[in-house]
Write a protein that binds this DNA or RNA. Sequence first.
DNA 1: CTCGCAAAAATCGTATGCAATCTTTTCTGG
DNA 2: CCAGAAAAGATTGCATACGATTTTTGCGAG
Lengths: 237, 237
Amino acid sequence: MNIADQTFPAVDSANEDRAQAIRDQLRDAIVDRRLAPGTKLSEGEVGTLFDVSRTVARAALQMLSFEGLVRTERNRGAFVANPSPEEARQVFASRRLIEPGIAIAAAGRMTPDHVAAFKAQLDEEGRFIAERGPNARRSEIKASGDFHLLLASVAGNTILQRFMEELVARSSLVIALYGRSGVSSCGHSEHMNILEALENGNSERASALMLHHIDHIEADLDLRVRSGPALRQALEF
Amino acid sequence: MNIADQTFPAVDSANEDRAQAIRDQLRDAIVDRRLAPGTKLSEGEVGTLFDVSRTVARAALQMLSFEGLVRTERNRGAFVANPSPEEARQVFASRRLIEPGIAIAAAGRMTPDHVAAFKAQLDEEGRFIAERGPNARRSEIKASGDFHLLLASVAGNTILQRFMEELVARSSLVIALYGRSGVSSCGHSEHMNILEALENGNSERASALMLHHIDHIEADLDLRVRSGPALRQALEF
DNA sequence: CTCGCAAAAATCGTATGCAATCTTTTCTGG
DNA sequence: CCAGAAAAGATTGCATACGATTTTTGCGAG
């Protein structure tokens, strides 16, 4: 899969930062797995695709590299990250540490508006699960991540929110790489249970459910190295 | 305090990224409070000081902006961050959530080498506390942060380690801004107690001590707004 | 003397050019 | 025909240039 095969919506951006808009587009493409891990993202190509100079493209790639979605090698360029099983474990270890606390914080701040937003989110999630087709699984992973991001935004700590954005994005990459098929619908029901606990202000329960939920997601991964990591890395795929 | 008044060690960098070296220098200067919150960091000046073009200076500033140490405004430039009391609270809320878990992880991975490193670190910390002089307090804050960074590195999760780097850096800013005088020596003894628990593999105790330690640090802050935050912000100081 | 407005200066956002480095192709000797 | 070296091509790292935006300065009116 080459980046040149991708099409991206025009960068409207208006007066906002163009690099940021490009970063968002690329992040979506990576998280949706339209750009496979290991894909080279050359400054020139990115620039051409978005109709900006290499300067701007480079800034966007630098941002993604900070988020861990892109790995840059000096004088060689940027590549979509290809997280190792160890990295995958660290991503989920981080989530186990952070997200239960976020659930507790969010439980104390739920408003009716928040509940409505969660309901809408879960509806959409269910719709994607019901759907079939080549894009269904991608949308499903995306929507599932959005649930966690919504939770983080309700918790009201912008620093943790940003950490979660990074962790969710990396998780999507990991799931795309190492995920087995099933379980996602199970994840949907777990989301619903968490929301129920949040609605009732039962922070302890929400926190415990979240911890189990993360465990379930990670348990669905196959983190055994697939045929020697050295080989895969050597072939850059 | 102007950035032009600062002197920086030459950027050796060898083959490594020059922008990264500049970022590290600036970060140290900010954390040490040689650069006051609100100080303007213009691309041109930074470039001149480090003898690089604006391109490289800009990249360094972009990195600092990701870490939250610098705030950038479009078409206006970059400024040393001036965290609000609310931001300060969020920094410490994040640390309360993350660091006890890091302590637990570290407790399970302590080696004699690690213990030695901690001992050396605490020695240095004690030395700075004993010292008097204009730079003593800066060095003290820095060394205190280094204890937490060392702990994060022992925990063995590179993602959490990076989060901690950001949180510790932001904490230093917050302490410099809102810290009352005392208590730091108290922090030193708390570090020693934490190390003792780590050495004994008593992860629960280490975790609990860490939580209290963070509470104590935050309790030493005076987070009341000082004369209307709007005014301070308007005056950019 | 102060206020408001216009011109000048400074600074940022971005494109582009050149040298350095890496990759690929081509050439040569065995 | 193949291995290794040399050249050609592509890509990055960085500096610089120029238009756009913001800030400062200068000056005249009130």
